[in-house]
Amino acid sequence: MNKEQLETIKKGYQWWLEAENQADKNEFAECITTEDVPALIAEVERLREALKFYADGQKYTLAYDSNLVGTVEIFKDNGKKARQVLGDDKCS
């Protein structure tokens, strides 16, 4: 799911929350396609995977290579995984 699709669904949902009557709410429900729900679920799963990467305490443990140079895996990543998940290749 791209950012545009997600934004359209967010706007529609916000409108639905503010709708005064049930007929308006039903109209929005008809706009959600059967493809939207699996796409939203997939988006949540992608984001959860990135969060798991950064939440893993082992990623913050100092590790030494054969030259006894210490590195922390999370520093080597430098946010790359988050940018990939968010689809933002401009940041480095």
Rank of each mutant, 00 (worst) to 15 (best):
I32F: 14
L62H: 03
Y54R: 09
T33E: 04
N26A: 14
E18T: 04
V72T: 09
K59W: 01
L51W: 06
K76D: 13
E27M: 06
P38W: 01
E18L: 11
E27P: 00
E20C: 00
A63T: 14
L51G: 07
F53N: 06
A42W: 03
V37C: 03
Q22K: 08
K11E: 14
E35L: 02
F75S: 05
V72E: 07
K25G: 09
D24R: 01
E20R: 02
Y13E: 03
V72L: 02
L40E: 05
L40I: 15
A23V: 04
F53H: 14
L51E: 06
K59N: 15
D36K: 04
V37G: 01
I74W: 06
Y60E: 13
T61H: 15
L17M: 13
A42D: 12
A55R: 08
K76T: 06
V72Q: 08
D77L: 03
K52C: 00
Q58W: 04
E45W: 03
K76A: 10
F28I: 04
L47T: 11
E30C: 04
I41D: 05
N67T: 11
Y13T: 10
K76C: 04
L68G: 05
Y60S: 14
I32M: 14
V37N: 05
A50K: 06
T71V: 13
G57A: 13
D24I: 00
K76P: 00
L17R: 13
K11H: 12
E20S: 08
R48T: 11
Y64M: 08
D24P: 00
V72K: 10
K52S: 02
A23R: 06
I74L: 11
F75M: 09
A42C: 00
L40D: 04
A42N: 10
Y54D: 12
A29H: 04
T61Y: 13
L17V: 07
R46V: 00
G70Y: 02
L62K: 10
T34C: 02
D24S: 08
N26L: 15
I32N: 11
A50I: 03
R46A: 01
R46I: 00
L17G: 09
